[in-house]
Simulated assay, not measured.
Amino acid sequence: MVPRPHNHGAGHSCEGDHDHHDTPEMGLQYSLYSKIDKDNLECLNESTEGSGKLVFKPWEERLNFGTYVESDADEELLFNIPFTGNIKLKGIVLIGSEDDSHPAKMRLFKNRPHMTFDDVTVPADQEFEMQPDINGSLEYSTKVVTFNNVHHLSIHIPSNFGSDQTRIYYIGLRGEFFESHHHGVTICTYEAKPNMSDHKNPLSDTVSHGIQ
Rank of each mutant, 00 (worst) to 15 (best):
K143C: 04
A104V: 02
K193V: 14
I155S: 05
F56E: 11
P158K: 00
F117V: 10
D99Q: 04
F83P: 00
R62V: 05
S208L: 12
F79S: 09
L44T: 12
G175P: 03
L44W: 10
P58V: 03
K53N: 13
E60Q: 10
T189D: 09
C14S: 15
Q131I: 08
F117L: 09
V144Y: 04
N160D: 01
N80T: 06
K53P: 12
E127R: 10
Y169A: 04
T48E: 13
T121E: 10
R167A: 00
F79K: 03
K53F: 02
L77F: 07
K38H: 15
V120F: 04
H6L: 03
D119E: 08
Q212G: 06
D125K: 10
Y68T: 08
P158F: 00
S137E: 15
L32P: 07
R174F: 00
D205G: 15
G11F: 09
D37M: 01
N160E: 01
S47W: 03
P5K: 08
V55F: 04
G66W: 00
L78K: 11
N45E: 08
Q29K: 15
R4Y: 09
W59S: 07
L138G: 06
G162W: 00
M196I: 14
M106D: 06
K88A: 08
L78V: 11
N64S: 09
I87M: 07
P103A: 01
T142N: 09
S47C: 10
E98C: 03
H182I: 15
E129I: 03
P3Q: 11
I187K: 04
T166D: 04
S204T: 04
P58A: 06
